[in-house]
């Protein structure tokens, strides 16, 4: 588990990374509930934050590829699968802690107004994995960290808009409402809406399963590219 432990060492060496991890989630806890949806706004937007945080974390693998330390690793007795798996596991742990802090603060700040925090936590944790998969797949398309990260910002906002995070998908033309189901953000938004409207917990099944499937698809895509 060397790779797993060193992810923490490397990531937290830069104090700014800790700030980056927590400042946005903590800030968005305090955004009040707006006209839509019936849940404090930050908790609906959180999926976009997760995409952003996952992108920052996943950047480590791109760094390894660009500075060729991955080449060295591939000469060592560690399989590429092990490498990816240990990295992802570490990122998942980090994001889960962030999710926990986020939901916990939410309960303190919003109290009764925050519907079923446990379900929200489950949704966020599953979506964290989807987001990590997405960042891995995204980075496999690029050679430079900066480029990948700066374009990603725009892509995340667009996915948020189209996926029903910024406004209900029903506001968009009919044909788009079907198409945006192909975006992971749609399912994240869908599941927080289910919680917000207090529908039964078992309705969460479909979105959660779809998010996991997205995660697997992204991982397969992202792990195809190995070196150089």
């Amino acid at each position: 588990m060397t790779i797993f432990t060193f992810v923490f060492k490397r990531f937290f060496r830069k104090k700014s990374n800790i700030v980056f991890l927590f400042v946005l989630p903590i800030g968005s806890v305090f955004i009040p509930t707006a006209a839509w949806p019936p849940i404090p706004l930050g908790f609906h937007y959180y999926s976009l934050l997760l995409l952003l945080l996952a992108a920052r974390l996943g950047g480590i693998t791109l760094e390894d590829r660009t500075n060729k330390t991955l080449l060295r690793l591939s000469a060592s007795p560690i399989s590429h699968f092990q490498y990816l798996f240990q990295n992802l596991l570490a990122y998942t742990v980090i994001l889960t802690v962030v999710n926990l802090v986020f939901v916990f603060l939410g309960v303190i700040v919003h109290g009764e107004n925050l519907p079923s925090p446990i379900l929200l936590f489950i949704i966020y944790t599953v979506f964290s994995m989807t987001a990590l998969g997405f960042s891995l797949a995204w980075y496999s398309l690029f050679r430079h960290m900066e480029t990948a990260f700066s374009i990603l910002g725009g892509v995340i906002v667009l996915m948020g808009m189209l996926g029903g995070v910024m406004w209900p998908v029903e506001a968009m033309p009919e044909y788009l409402q079907q198409a945006v189901m192909l975006l992971p953000t749609y399912w994240a938004a869908e599941s927080t809406l289910i919680v917000a409207y207090g529908t039964q917990a078992k309705d969460l099944g479909t979105p959660l399963v779809v998010m996991i499937l997205f995660c697997i698809a992204f991982l397969l895509l992202g792990s195809r590219r190995r070196l150089t």
Partner: peptide
């Protein structure tokens, strides 16, 4: 692989780890 060492043409070190930690990492991987 466990018994081979490869010195790469490029300098392939983790810039965010100290000399000792770099060795600890690669040692751990082996």
């Amino acid at each position: 692989k466990r018994q081979i060492g490869l010195v790469t043409q490029e300098i392939t070190l983790f810039t965010d780890l100290t000399a000792k930690e770099n060795l600890a990492f690669f040692g751990g991987v082996y």
